[in-house]
Design a protein around this nucleic acid. Structure first.
Lengths: 193, 193
DNA sequence: CCTTCGAGAGAACCATCGTTCTCCTCCAAT
DNA sequence: ATTGGAGGAGAACGATGGTTCTCTCGAAGG
């Protein structure tokens, strides 16, 4: 089997297992079993479990943000893009196997023990925050709104994850709409300037 | 040592260790070391690690909600009480050793593995939600507002925990204020009825 | 055909951990 | 004073898991 193919299979298995069951609960042997890649090769490819976790979170971060951006950019107007973030969250929450945010979960599990995971979680959340800031900037709205939207989104991920209620995204979307209106009134659109 | 004293010391040690380092990372031996209660007695008092975790979360839930309620009830008017929730969050975030929400963290770690923890997390979050609903009802505001506030609060806990920025509570408070205004405009106070 | 090297299966190794057991001590009741 | 039982210190046990090692096989190159 090709080196890259093996890496992909390992990462696929790691993602499925780590995301659904947590990190400490999953053994390297489980990943070997699901991926079909031998332990020897697995260690050859990733070094240690810690590095494998790192690679898993890294790849998931890229894909997660890409999927979000793909959905959001499909929306034409700046304000619509902001709301689209919450629509996408709703889609995500509805996917089978949704179990909350991988970074929040990992951070809760090992944030104080593993600097690898703490760093990945902060980087991911920071990137998400910057993306929201970009969206609000594009809509000529203040950064405070971005921070408020971040809190709503994080709260929705947590709540939908714990209760298994994908509809939480709609609530977050509604709240986001209200905050957006609020922000628009405080700083009206360009024609008013 | 008295039975109740021993139980208290064990729970104190369990809380300090489980909250700061996570559950799987902490061994029963660590709890013995910090509490000064022998392993034998420890198992006599709590049966299994799982039951100890349960007792820890149970006690923390009671105390957490009590502290919140104590702070909130000190505020006279209904709308002020709603905002007071976020002030209290700010105080909590500023306490030394703050590491996010114990239930969110525990759920992220073992929510899919331990039904004990999943149940505790859902119960705690449900109780918090009901409390917010009570506060909004008292202020003659709709339940939707309570749900929005819940999302803000959860988001604030997560964000403050991951980034270590207690100021997040102020952002949540500001957003809560905006949503409160929004809700008041949608359903004005009694005189208008 | 032979050699060599990479890879797989799985045992082995070592540490950790939940839980129990042993042995010893101490104190209270007789 | 004796005894009995509770409790402490810590070893022991069995399971698990991260990591490495051994043995074997098969394929590629001479």
């Amino acid at each position: 089997m090709d080196r890259e193919v093996a890496q992909g299979r390992v990462l696929d298995a790691a993602e499925e297992l780590f995301y659904s069951r947590g990190i400490q609960t999953v053994g390297m042997d489980d990943i070997r079993g699901l991926s079909g890649v031998s332990l020897k090769r697995l260690y050859q490819l990733f070094g240690t479990k810690d590095q494998l976790v790192d690679a898993y979170l890294e790849r998931r971060d890229l894909r997660w943000r890409q999927r979000l951006a793909d959905h959001v950019e499909a929306c034409g107007d700046p304000e619509g893009r902001i709301i689209a973030v919450f629509d996408w969250l709703g889609q995500w929450f509805n996917e089978p196997g949704f179990r909350g945010c991988a970074w929040i979960n990992s951070y809760g599990e090992l944030g104080t023990t593993s600097t690898t995971i703490a760093t990945q979680a902060r980087r991911h959340k920071q990137a998400f925050r910057r993306y929201l800031e970009k969206l609000t900037t594009d809509a000529h709205l203040p950064h405070d709104l971005a921070e408020h939207l971040l809190l709503l989104a994080e709260g929705a991920m947590v709540t939908a994850g714990i209760f298994g209620t994908p509809g939480t995204a709609a609530q977050a979307r509604a709240a986001a709409g209200l905050l957006l209106e609020s922000a628009k009134q405080a700083r009206p659109p360009l024609p008013a300037r």
